[in-house]
């Protein structure tokens, strides 16, 4: 059963920009999904639709096979189940205090203060915020702000967390920390949808990859399927992941066998080559 399903989703901004032109897709519970596509292909708009901030002009979204309910009560329920971590933490963090900031969402969904406090502490712990929890948000680094903005959503105990380009503007070290934290969330059974431009990470991490192009789904499938579709990658200005490109070359040159499972990262590929040499 799908947790989220979109049927023929259309969305047009007030200035007439058609951001989404018929999105069809479904997401299974617990999946790790990477959404790729050029800037302006509609990823962020789609995310805002998932959370009920943007109401589609045409088409329907389903949560647990029930169409989205845009009444006040329906939205409250929807937003407590589907959370968005925004791209720029400075657009999301509204309080100077980390503790206040994280407690906002959980109080809004009507959890009592005692339970909310417990959950805030838990999120601080889980997302490794303790070392800077007493710092004001304006003195945090980009990576730390990102950790707080993920905690903002985690406290609401959502079923789906949507992250809009989580690694944008992060240095490699903080990207690794963040990826490790996202992995933790996924291990808890939370469905994760991220948008990214990092093909290597998407290839290694995702269960399913979705290519967006001009407000439509160009292709979706396993990472191996999607990243082998050279034509579609070219259309969306994406390069083949390094591991896949090298693997294809090595197969073409007879170094490796084509019937081996496609390596999802360079480490696996390295292992193949090492074994081959033995």
């Amino acid at each position: 059963m799908s947790i989220i399903r979109a049927e023929n989703l259309h969305f047009t901004y007030e200035d007439g920009t058609e951001a989404l032109r018929g999105i069809d897709l479904s997401v299974e519970a617990g999946q790790k999904i990477a959404l790729l596509g050029a800037n302006g292909s509609g990823k962020s708009t789609f995310f805002l639709c998932l959370n009920g901030i943007n109401q589609p002009k045409e088409g329907t979204l389903y949560l647990h096979d029930k169409p989205y309910d845009y009444s006040k009560k329906g939205l409250l329920e929807l937003r407590s189940k589907v959370g968005i971590v925004f791209q720029d933490p400075d657009n999301q963090l509204f309080s100077a205090s980390v503790f206040q900031e994280i407690s906002f969402g959980v109080l809004n969904i009507g959890v009592d203060e005692k339970e909310a406090e417990r959950r805030v502490e838990e999120a601080i712990n889980e997302l490794e915020i303790t070392p800077f929890r007493h710092k004001p948000t304006h003195f945090l680094s980009g990576g730390q702000k990102k950790q707080v903005s993920v905690a903002d959503i985690l406290v609401m105990d959502p079923e789906v967390i949507v992250l809009d380009e989580p690694a944008a503007a992060l240095d490699p070290k903080h990207t690794i920390i963040l990826n490790h934290l996202i992995e933790k969330l996924s291990a808890r059974g939370i469905t994760i949808i991220i948008s990214t431009h990092d093909v290597d990470h998407a290839f290694a991490w995702a269960d399913e990859v979705i290519l967006f192009h001009k407000g439509k789904v160009l292709r979706r499938g396993t990472p191996e399927e999607v990243f082998s579709a050279a034509e579609d990658l070219e259309k969306t200005n994406l390069a083949k992941p390094a591991a896949l490109r090298l693997f294809d070359n090595l197969v073409a040159n007879g170094v490796l066998d084509a019937d081996e499972p496609i390596p999802r990262n360079l480490d696996t590929l390295e292992m193949y080559i090492r074994e081959r040499r033995k």
């Binding site: 805002l48 959370n51 925004f86 503790f99 206040q100 906002f104 909310a116």
Partner: peptide, 20 residues
Amino acid sequence: ALFDAMESRCYDGRIRVLNE
């Protein structure tokens, strides 16, 4: 953008927060 982000966390016109 801030308003959208707050809305997505069920903001209803009152900022409720816990304080340490």
